[in-house]
Design a protein around this nucleic acid. Structure first.
Lengths: 186, 186
DNA sequence: TACAAGTAAGTATTCATTTACTTATCAGAA
DNA sequence: TTCTGATAAGTAAATGAATACTTACTTGTA
């Protein structure tokens, strides 16, 4: 086994992402992460200081990647909502990690999200008159994530995984809903 | 101490609601629930069959109460969204329990939500043309819960607890957003 | 007095964290 | 080029604190 600190760090982070997304902080097992990463528990403590540090690093990295891959689109907020939907569809761990973090370690959540916020908030200022920029930002996120966040009981008794055309239809409904919210003439 | 099985059951359920809302299923402690309920661990096993059974009962009860207290308003879906917002504001445990359940015990979540769904779905059929009834239902929930679900980093660096007028403003934004989504003439 | 309701004290396991140890890598002296 | 030893990288096993669940028992009530 070649000795490469950076590579080991990364394997641990990847394994942690899977583990924590699946079981959360309290339910996530350090041993599983170590063996899945083909490494050792000790290394988690060496590189990340412990379970908490590893979890925080995992969340921060997931959000960083999202901010990088789904940049805000000032000219087309509805389209951007669609992009967010797609990103969560491709990487379901991100949303699960965020939810776990918000429930289990709310303080760890504030900071990385704030970075994303500053990137996107400016973008929403020009939007839908009676709604403020923050309103718009909060609702766009909510709508973009609505399908993935909805308990299955709400969306209907459905086959898993959801069929591709159904996913496309959902994406379309997201874009439509945001469009209507933003450009309504009542 | 009077011996009243029904009362003990209830005290346990109340304590469990607080405990599980705060720490989730994996993080929730059976001992804490027992002592908080002024009862004994053994009783949890007698009445609810174990930790899992207790958690499921807790969730089901919370959702039942919500369905009871916030009945769908066919004539005014936006107003209904406001009611849902209010309910989550008054009883934050409900939303937290739902989130925990969805992450930790997804199968337990499906059934109780489905009951709520059947109650509300019919109501949304007449709604906003390009969007289907299920679409509307999913988005109304998402918007109604958006503020409580948003990580603090997104809503802004804010004082805790949120000031009353700020809450009122948020409620108003929820109603407005749903109205616009439903009644848009684009 | 019979049974439901309640209690207290285990038991066996699981899990995060630490300790004490082994091995690869590589800079620089011979 | 070849040794060598200092240090970074990695390992295995122990520790000790929790924790869900059970057993064996006591007490109130109808």
């Amino acid at each position: 086994m070649a000795r490469d600190a950076e590579a080991t760090r990364e394997r641990i982070l990847t394994a942690a992402t899977v583990e924590f997304a699946a079981h959360g902080f309290a339910g996530g097992r350090v041993d599983r992460i170590a063996s899945e990463a083909q490494s050792n528990v000790r290394m988690i403590y060496a590189y990340y200081g412990g379970k908490s540090g590893l979890f925080d690093a995992t969340l921060a990295e997931a959000l960083r990647r999202m901010a990088e891959n789904v940049p805000p689109r000032p000219d087309n907020l509805a389209g951007w909502a669609g992009d967010v939907f797609d990103h969560h569809q491709r990487f379901p761990e991100v949303l699960r990690l965020s939810m776990w973090a918000q429930l289990e370690r709310p303080t760890a959540t504030a900071e990385p999200h704030d970075i994303y916020r500053s990137k996107t908030l400016a973008v929403a200022t020009a939007a839908a008159q009676p709604l403020s920029a923050v309103d718009v930002l909060v609702f766009i996120y909510a709508i973009a994530q609505a399908w993935q966040l909805s308990p299955e009981g709400l969306t209907g008794l459905e086959q898993n995984p959801v069929r591709a055309e159904e996913v496309a239809a959902r994406r379309h409904s997201v874009v439509t809903a945001v469009e209507r919210m933003l450009h309504a003439r009542t």
